[in-house]
């Protein structure tokens, strides 16, 4: 039973981090029907920014929750700037061209950012500091949930609630939904599409950066390559849940997290990715639009 609970918690936290990344894929796809392959790199840059910020702020004497929160905030802002710039440089000039052009440009951006971090930082794994403070009240249940896992869940839940409130109740959130549903009509209502697209990239990047901080805290090591693998997984999660659907991305990410965790525990850790992708294939055979995606109806 304890073993099951361990696997459950590790699947839940892994799924949470996938969800934070997957939201960026699904939101961008919902708005401009582009798979932003550089999104995993934004997550990786978030982790690196957190590492550098924690060294600087730590040497300035900051510690505990203050350190963790300010590191997360700096990573979020920095990644947001990267996300914004990537869209301006690599996607906006290609708007209105064929659908393949921005896709290629996204892959190029992804390779560029990976190599840039590899050269500017390190080609090796770097040790990530333990940023999560001791949580005393967790002592009695420490066997079931670690402080890092608790922090991952709290960050994720707050992000999801924040995102939902933003999308449902703010003017920009409403404009995002409108642009996702009918871009031409949104323009006719006076929406500046470019601003909405930029905002989408910024929000997706903030969430990915938080994912990067959390993965650093939980794995305790990062490299320039982590964005590629996590990006693939999160993209899979977004497709699984139905790309374009925000709740779908979360559901897909949790399914993927649990599948990996249980497969690693009960089958073999070398088979965890196999099981995850078998689930993807099975779901896509029976529901090609994903779990919560809407079936595309072709107009004749």
């Amino acid at each position: 039973m304890n073993f099951f609970l361990d696997l459950f918690m590790s699947g839940l936290t892994k799924g949470s981090i996938y969800a934070l990344i997957a939201l960026g894929y699904t939101m961008v796809y919902g708005i401009i029907a582009l798979i932003n392959f550089a999104h995993g790199e934004i997550y990786m840059i978030g982790a690196f920014t957190a590492l550098l910020a924690s060294m600087v702020l730590g040497s300035l004497g900051l510690s505990g929750w203050g350190l963790l929160l300010s590191v997360a905030a700096i990573a979020a802002v920095y990644s947001a700037m990267y996300g914004w710039t990537v869209e301006r440089v690599a996607y906006k000039p290609l708007r209105g061209s064929s659908r393949l052009a921005p896709l290629i440009s996204a892959i190029g951006m992804s390779i560029f950012l990976q190599n840039y971090v590899q050269l500017a930082q390190s080609p090796n794994f770097l040790v990530f500091p333990d940023l999560v403070p001791q949580i005393d009240f967790l002592a009695p249940v420490a066997r079931y949930i670690s402080r890092t896992q608790l922090v991952i869940l709290l960050f994720t839940v707050f992000s999801m609630v924040g995102l939902t409130v933003f999308i449902k109740f703010t003017k920009m959130g409403m404009a995002m939904r409108a642009v996702a549903q009918d871009q031409t009509m949104a323009r006719l209502a006076g929406v500046n599409i470019d601003k909405v697209i930029s905002a989408t990239f910024v929000i997706g990047s903030i969430l990915a950066a938080l994912g990067g901080v959390l993965i650093g805290c939980s794995m305790r090591q990062i490299s320039f390559y982590i964005g590629f693998i996590a990006g693939m997984k999160a993209f899979t999660a977004a497709v699984l849940g139905g790309i374009g659907s925000i709740p779908g991305a979360v559901v897909g990410a949790l399914i993927l997290g649990f599948a990996e965790s249980f497969a690693a525990g009960y089958v073999s850790s070398s088979y965890k990715d196999v099981v995850a992708f078998i689930i993807l294939i099975i779901i896509l055979i029976f529901r090609p639009e994903g779990i919560m995606g809407q079936a595309q109806t072709q107009k004749v």
């Binding site: 003017k171 409403m174 404009a175 939904r177 409108a178 549903q181 009918d182 031409t184 009509m185 949104a186 006719l188 209502a189 006076g190 929406v191």
Partner: peptide
């Protein structure tokens, strides 16, 4: 402009559609 086919935002409520008009 009110385009052909009306182009209501299907997933927005009627009130939200009106608010989009006042964007």
């Amino acid at each position: 402009m009110v385009p052909e086919g009306r182009r209501i935002f299907p997933g927005l409520t009627v009130l939200e559609n009106l608010k989009m008009g006042a964007y």
